[in-house]
């Protein structure tokens, strides 16, 4: 009964209990399966360093400044490591995608690193460059994952998907920036009329990002659930994972890269 990939048997007495037990089993199964792909130590360190970055908003003491700088720096470097490792260690992108990726990363980093007085902003301002690199890599990893899940092979749709994912990841920032400029227009000392006029395009881009996020999430998650066998099919009893047999999945040269065999595959 300690096999996480196996659904618990149905209990006729309670539908809610059944739903909860099924959900918990799914979670366990997802965790178990994704462990083969993930870089768990980096994921946990990343999450643990997030609270330290909150010190950026408490700029009242030099010690807090340095805490923010160290926390943000650690987070940024780990973000690059995590997604860089997933991108180059687990996934494989085409040459064209690599070209676009490097070009976009170079533009973003160039804009940041050539900004005058950036270094004098605060001790943590240097962390902006790796953070943006993390954003670019994050978008690339999500794109390759989605392309593989959706079985997208043609280059143009994959490039569009790449751009869409960068936009989707930047959507909260675009909306926040747009709202700040829209509201900041009332504080005429801080926001010039020209800057305030940018709030509409930013909010519009944020809106497009929201739509793309919903669309990509729905389609990709549905496909992922189908691959993972979480979609209920008619006439299935429910005691075993549905469609989760190795025979159902097509073989691919990339499969060994996605899911290397390890001794730990034999579960205790």
């Amino acid at each position: 009964m300690n096999e996480p990939w196996r659904y618990p048997p149905s209990v006729p007495a309670s539908r809610v209990a059944n739903w909860w037990r099924r959900r918990r089993a799914e979670r366990k199964r997802l965790a178990y399966a994704s462990a083969r792909f993930d870089l768990r130590w980096a994921r946990w360190l990343l999450t643990l360093s997030v609270p330290l970055t909150a010190a950026n908003f408490l700029r009242s003491h030099p010690a807090l400044d340095w805490t923010a700088a160290v926390g943000t720096g650690v987070f940024a470097v780990l973000l690059c490591l995590y997604f860089g490792w997933l991108l180059f260690g687990r996934l494989q992108c085409s040459l064209l995608e690599l070209l676009v990726l490097v070009g976009f990363l170079g533009h973003v980093e160039g804009l940041v690193l050539t900004t005058p007085r950036l270094a004098s902003m605060s001790p943590g301002s240097w962390a902006l460059a790796p953070l943006l690199a993390g954003w670019v890599l994050y978008g690339a990893v999500v794109t390759l994952a989605q392309a593989r899940i959706l079985a997208l092979e043609r280059p143009v749709p994959r490039l569009l998907l790449l751009a869409a994912n960068w936009l989707v990841l930047a959507t909260p920032a675009l909306i926040v920036a747009g709202v700040l400029l829209r509201c900041g227009g009332q504080f005429e000392a801080m926001v010039s009329p020209d800057m305030a006029a940018w709030s509409t395009p930013l909010l519009a881009a944020g809106g497009v990002g929201c739509v793309l996020f919903v669309w990509l999430s729905v389609t990709t998650r549905r496909s992922a659930r189908e691959i993972f066998g979480l979609v209920r099919r008619k006439g299935h009893s429910g005691d075993t994972p549905k469609g989760a047999s190795s025979d159902a999945a097509p073989r691919d040269p990339m499969d060994a890269r996605l899911c290397p065999r390890r001794p730990a595959d034999v579960h205790p």
């Binding site: 096999e3 990939w5 979670r27 199964r29 997802l30 965790a31 178990y32 399966a33 994704s34 083969r36 792909f37 993930d38 999500v142 994952a145 989605q146 593989r148 899940i149 990709t220 998650r221 496909s223 992922a224 659930r225 691959i227 993972f228 066998g229 979480l230 994972p241 989760a244 047999s245 190795s246 159902a248 999945a249 691919d252 990339m254 499969d255 060994a256 996605l258 899911c259 595959d265 034999v266 579960h267």
Partner: peptide, 18 residues
């Protein structure tokens, strides 16, 4: 007991869903 033989794409799908 060994788990069912893994579908390699399952790992990616699981990572995406989680």
């Amino acid at each position: 007991t060994a788990p069912p033989a893994p579908d390699p794409r399952e790992a990616l799908a699981a990572w995406y869903l989680r």
